[in-house]
Design a protein around this nucleic acid. Structure first.
Lengths: 214, 214
DNA sequence: AAAGTTTGAAAACGATGATTTTCAAGCTGT
DNA sequence: ACAGCTTGAAAATCATCGTTTTCAAACTTT
């Protein structure tokens, strides 16, 4: 216990233990982004597949994660954060635009942030669905962040007199559902449209639902 | 070959071979509706689970189906047909109503037909997602039936001058996505609303998007 | 009641993967 | 160059199911 001078973990090939570990972790994650984010996807990839893609061994995998689902969960947070950052980045620039433009810009930023990289889109809208109660919980948490964001923006718009007051809770939930449903269908190739078309369609939906006059 | 008089399959416990087979099939299917349609769902149920629930043996299972997915696929068609029948049943009654009422009635019929039985809803909007390429194909086929139905109705409404002409392909796809997304979220308990609320919300979405004036 | 079917449950097989362990080789600091 | 970490790949374990067979009991028809 109090014995060995515990020189902490040693260095190896130049880097500290922490650095080496971080590198492996990141290798597993980026291999996961590739494998989970394309064609057969998460359900079809085995631990050994991920290890091969990452150029590491199963022992190392179990040193970092306890299951493939861990990797998926981390990627889910990651791709969501990317989309969120994309939206938050435009918020300041659009604060003073009239509502319609403001929505256009924000929706565009969201769609681009979420789906410019098709691997991100697939993970966010397809792979993560129906995996486990644990993943569902995590999805719900992220979803509620978006709901709050929406509601906050609606309240603001109402306060500015840009749209009629009302109870938009269900409408917000419905819009989130619409986004997820449409994006899912788009990702799996059922909707023949560009990302811009998608953004435009979402804009129309929102404008119409909230009876925003042009 | 031409030997035995082949008295065809014999009767047993009163019923013919065909009747016995049909009964087993139906037992497997209704056990599937229960198991796939509730809590842990399709992904969590094993062949043996289905057999136990159906009160039959695995041998009999393999005489009727080649995999659990077969059962899921058949159930998917079944629950979809139920929803479709519900909608088609009201079509004649509403043909002469003004567009807004017509939509209200049809959407209501759809939502009720699809989700009055929660097991149906779960199978249609949750369990069937991301299972396999084969199930995806089947889902896409059913989806296109709905798209056609929507487009047909839009064309009619445009012809009657009830809404402005335009290209509504993407809008129709988006609406289907919205329905699926919202229903999914509702089924898994993320949207706190009654089925009627859901129907009303979908109605609002559609009316707004298509700029239908009240 | 003999001969042939049909059933249902259990046992036997076989595959696939997840997890752990082992082991030889590569580094590091002394 | 020694002694102790680290690594990477392969082998050994385990566990879970799907799928096929076996076998005795139940039932039918002759």
């Amino acid at each position: 216990m109090a014995g060995r001078s515990a020189p902490a973990a040693g260095r190896y090939k130049g880097r500290s233990a922490g650095e080496r570990q971080a590198e492996r972790r990141s290798r597993f994650l980026s291999a996961g982004l590739d494998l989970f984010g394309t064609a057969p996807g998460y359900r079809a990839t085995k631990v050994i597949d991920l290890c091969k893609a990452a150029g590491l061994s199963t022992r190392q995998f179990y040193e970092e994660f306890t299951s493939l689902e861990d990797v998926l969960a981390e990627l889910h947070l990651y791709v969501n954060d990317a989309a969120q950052r994309a939206v938050l980045a435009v918020v300041p620039e659009v604060r003073d635009l009239p509502l319609p433009e403001r929505l256009t810009r924000m929706i565009h930023a969201y769609v681009q942030g979420a789906a410019a990289d098709p691997r991100h889109a697939r993970i966010a809208y397809v792979e993560v669905i129906g995996v486990s109660p644990r993943m569902d919980r995590q999805r719900l948490e992220r979803r509620s962040v978006w709901i709050d964001f929406l509601i906050r923006n609606i309240d603001e718009a109402v306060a500015r007199g840009e749209m009629p007051p009302g109870n938009y809770r269900i409408a917000a939930a419905a819009f989130i559902g619409a986004v997820n449903g449409l994006m899912h269908d788009w990702v799996v190739g059922w909707v023949d449209a560009t990302l811009d078309d998608i953004a435009a369609e979402l804009h129309q939906t929102l404008m119409g639902r909230y009876r925003i006059s042009l």
